[in-house]
Design a protein around this nucleic acid. Sequence first.
DNA 1: GATGAATGAGCGTTCATTCAT
DNA 2: TATGAATGAACGCTCATTCAT
Lengths: 191, 191, 191, 191
Amino acid sequence: MSTSVNKRENILQSALAFFAERGFDATTIPMIANDAKVGAGTIYRYFENKEVLVNTLFQHYVELFTNTLVEEYPSDHSLRDQFHHLFQGMVRFTNEHEHALYFIKTHNAAYFLDETSRKQFEKLLAILRNFLDQGREEEKIRDLPSTALIAIIFGGFLELHKLIRAGEIEASEELLEGVEESCWDAVRTHK
Amino acid sequence: MSTSVNKRENILQSALAFFAERGFDATTIPMIANDAKVGAGTIYRYFENKEVLVNTLFQHYVELFTNTLVEEYPSDHSLRDQFHHLFQGMVRFTNEHEHALYFIKTHNAAYFLDETSRKQFEKLLAILRNFLDQGREEEKIRDLPSTALIAIIFGGFLELHKLIRAGEIEASEELLEGVEESCWDAVRTHK
Amino acid sequence: MSTSVNKRENILQSALAFFAERGFDATTIPMIANDAKVGAGTIYRYFENKEVLVNTLFQHYVELFTNTLVEEYPSDHSLRDQFHHLFQGMVRFTNEHEHALYFIKTHNAAYFLDETSRKQFEKLLAILRNFLDQGREEEKIRDLPSTALIAIIFGGFLELHKLIRAGEIEASEELLEGVEESCWDAVRTHK
Amino acid sequence: MSTSVNKRENILQSALAFFAERGFDATTIPMIANDAKVGAGTIYRYFENKEVLVNTLFQHYVELFTNTLVEEYPSDHSLRDQFHHLFQGMVRFTNEHEHALYFIKTHNAAYFLDETSRKQFEKLLAILRNFLDQGREEEKIRDLPSTALIAIIFGGFLELHKLIRAGEIEASEELLEGVEESCWDAVRTHK
DNA sequence: GATGAATGAGCGTTCATTCAT
DNA sequence: TATGAATGAACGCTCATTCAT
């Protein structure tokens, strides 16, 4: 039981790391099994097949990320504060789950995602969209489709994250503040 | 004669579309052959193997994109004009080559790229880096690593492009102007 | 456990028979798998690839044959007795391993043999060469290159063996004694 | 016409060299076509397929060799002289057709030979068998199956020939005389 | 429940053969 | 007649998945 939970968790962690680093298609079940220190067959006791595994992983982390963004959401603070909360959520989530956001980003349009995964991802987008739509009504956010703005924030942050992961730049406090400011300037109106 | 050119071109176009949509590893030679309406073996008359095919494609489009950015570059105009030139280059290139930029973005760090491909891609980055470094000296561009800013522009634009390709938003003149402005605001200093 | 050993052994036996009968290039993995009653993939659990399989087989039987020739070698008997020992070794080895010597003969110069295989085969030749060189010093063996004499014995015996395997002649005690005498007369001096 | 004859001849010569050096299965049609300086398709104007080509070649050279042995056969000379004639025939044939005898030897039991080829080869053996049977009646040839004796001569001579081809020993007059004597001693009775 | 040996579908690739030119 | 571009069957090999232990 406790063993089982651990095994399942080990499998998920190993799979996450490989999917993020090499992608779903370049990752083999033996690789995951080996890294998770379980038999290859054991993976199939916890996950029907490789696609179920990747969807489970995707849904889990999208939900976790969604919760991170939603928790203690400062609805009654300024729009800038709300943006800060969201951006900090990204940062914190990435710190806590090294591979998760990059995995989500590189696999969110993949051919093997099922309905549930796509819907889960939609829910995440909805939160960001709500924020932006509200801001646009107040004329504090640009009159561009929310999806486009999300793309800029998400895309920017995650390409940055990729560089940090690759060791090409260092994730200092200053850098992150600068990037947050940059993203905010990308999104807000400059009357 | 003309047939051969067409076959080679068909293979390249089919491969580009699949690589962009599913990635290199998830794309099989039979998929490409079928889509290009040639026999599987025919692909090997034009390309030594799958890796040569993907490198050929990568180098071709990185070079084409680089040329697009470099052509008629307004060196003596304002930084904003230069940015416009670069952004318009992206837009034009993407209009002319639907899958190319997305393919470049999703494969530029792939394990199967050869030296030439990597160097070719470095040349492209150098152009963008030069632009940003120059602007930073003039204190018109934020004091963030160029790679990070490139990530924001590239990432933002391409996530947007992905949405356009997916048909979720429409690529109107206004939208693109708005996104350009948004990217510019992400990158420039706001005294 | 015992199953695994058997599978490996079955694969080796099937491969040996095909390699001897049709040659390495004309033998396909599916042929071997089918004959050994294993899945094609199973072969790769035991042998890294087809070349490793053929080299394993080659080395195994060359060593076995070498040992057969060396065991209880009558160094202090007459040259004729030594020849008898070697010839009997060939006969016995061929009786115990139907296809092995023919396989060795037809593949000993093949392009796919690795260093170890070549060295192993050299060791076998060295034994025969030593015997002949010693005899030539005593002027009991013809003054022809040892390699040439080995070729005559080996070639003669194995062409004979081929006929026996093909069922065209029967391997009686008398026949073998006659052939031994014939080979000995081919090799020795007739003062 | 003359061109055609040449093309056909070129194809046969190139095929012979490759078959002798690498074997039938390791030889590709493009290899032959390239070496013969004809298009790959051209080969199929002269030979229905690869197997017909190899059978044509086999039959041609077996017949040629047979004729070499039969020509000017000294029926009324001594057995030893007849043997000399046969052995000289082998030598001469090998000098005139570098790859032919080795090709015949390495392919005479191949799975792809047709009925005609096998019969042709049988005819060649019959000549040698006749010689031996006659000698045995006179009690000048050992009482061993003719096929076995042929195997010794053929096997010995051709293993020797292989060494010469490989450059491991030189084909001097003396060597050949010595080998002939050796073969003769292998075959004759030593009352 | 956990394992990993075994499987075979399907991959990338080669090459005998065909056929439009 | 001669060609070589094109084909697809079949190769060697990998790996998701199964199942006896």
